[in-house]
Design a protein around this nucleic acid. Structure first.
Lengths: 197, 197
DNA sequence: TTTATAATATGATGATCATCATACAAACGG
DNA sequence: CCGTTTGTATGATGATCATCATATTATAAA
């Protein structure tokens, strides 16, 4: 063993990180292996020492995105009760900052329509990540004695993802903001997350 | 003028129709000019007699999709009062049939994440279509004396699009159905569209 | 310092694709 | 029924890209 044991793995992680960003911005079809490698500070040649195919890179990148997402949920909710945690997460998710940071944000909003076109393994990876987020939010709702917390969480995630996606579709800045704020308000109201109206 | 006056336009429409279907299924990047032309019963050569570029085709296809969507709204709501109309539209939108017909369904659910990557003109075309749908639903809600019908419509569209998108992401059939049904129920409840609980 | 080898780079290869140039076909007016 | 013109087809061209074969570099151990 000549190189440091972790050297290759570190490199792999850099590539996956660069891919996760590029894929969310340019889409899984449009990114090129060479461009991603370049972004990670390498050339395209070594690629197949790390991944069996481009598809495997996409799959790894999706996994990475959901790890980042999960970390974000934890970051927004830890040390807070269920109500405050949910409010913080909704406010983060439907913020302008999140909307404008496509390369780093929620994979569901960034890739939902690409998904049905991806490989089986990527789709499975993705579906599992989506389920985990729903379950996590469902637990918070359950702690608030919601009747059917699981269904409520599904509905909440749907509105979050839909509103963020549509806010990115809307070309007019004011209207885009309005999409975010409408859903922020409605979500808090319908799940009784604000004491005052 | 040798050919029938409408001949070329008929052909153009066939191509746009084929493109609208192919784009929703395979995405704007993955479809090939030659494949779309073949689907319309032609060869790739004549393409540039109809469109200045692939991009123009995509733009025309998006316009076509929103026309289809609009027709669908009319079909579900005409001859019905606002409550029944909204219920019918929600039930259609969040149906398994719609979920499984990606090539013919709502462009927002089919393309939302592709959108930020498209040309300015396609984006504008798309945003306008999304606005029109929101306005139409907003009018129904306004007829029901909703406080802020516009914001309510935004929230409703967000949940519709999000739920449909996520139901297509979910690989497990039962869970996918559950996503649709959770939002069907929640939407009707929160907008007071069902008299009984 | 040398050497073996793991990690990365250079440079094909073949495939796919948008675009275009040119050739053929269809159909209406004469 | 013939010639002109509009619409469509055939067949390049150049670009981009995934993948792979081979060369080069870096570094841990001897």
């Amino acid at each position: 063993m000549r190189y440091d044991t972790e050297h290759k793995q570190k490199t792999r992680e850099k590539v996956v990180h660069a891919a996760a960003r590029a894929i969310r911005i340019d889409g899984p079809e449009r990114i090129g292996v060479a461009a991603v490698m370049a972004e990670a500070g390498l050339t395209h040649g070594g690629f197949y020492a790390h991944f069996a195919s481009k598809d495997e890179l996409v799959s790894a990148a999706i996994e990475h995105m959901f790890e980042q997402s999960r970390a974000r949920v934890v970051h927004e909710t830890e040390g807070r009760g269920p109500v405050e945690g949910l409010i913080a997460y909704i406010d983060f998710y439907l913020s302008k900052k999140h909307r404008d940071a496509r390369g780093a944000g929620c994979p569901m909003a960034a890739l939902s329509s690409d998904l049905p076109r991806l490989s089986e393994s990527s789709r499975e990876q993705f579906a599992a990540g989506a389920r985990r987020l729903t379950v996590t939010l469902g637990e918070k709702l359950a702690a608030l004695d919601h009747v059917d917390a699981e269904a409520a969480a599904r509905s909440m995630v749907a509105e979050l993802v839909g509103a963020l996606s549509l806010s990115r579709v809307e070309t007019d800045a004011k209207r885009s903001d309005a999409i975010l704020s409408a859903s922020r308000h409605q979500l808090k109201q319908r799940f009784h997350l604000e004491v005052r109206a």
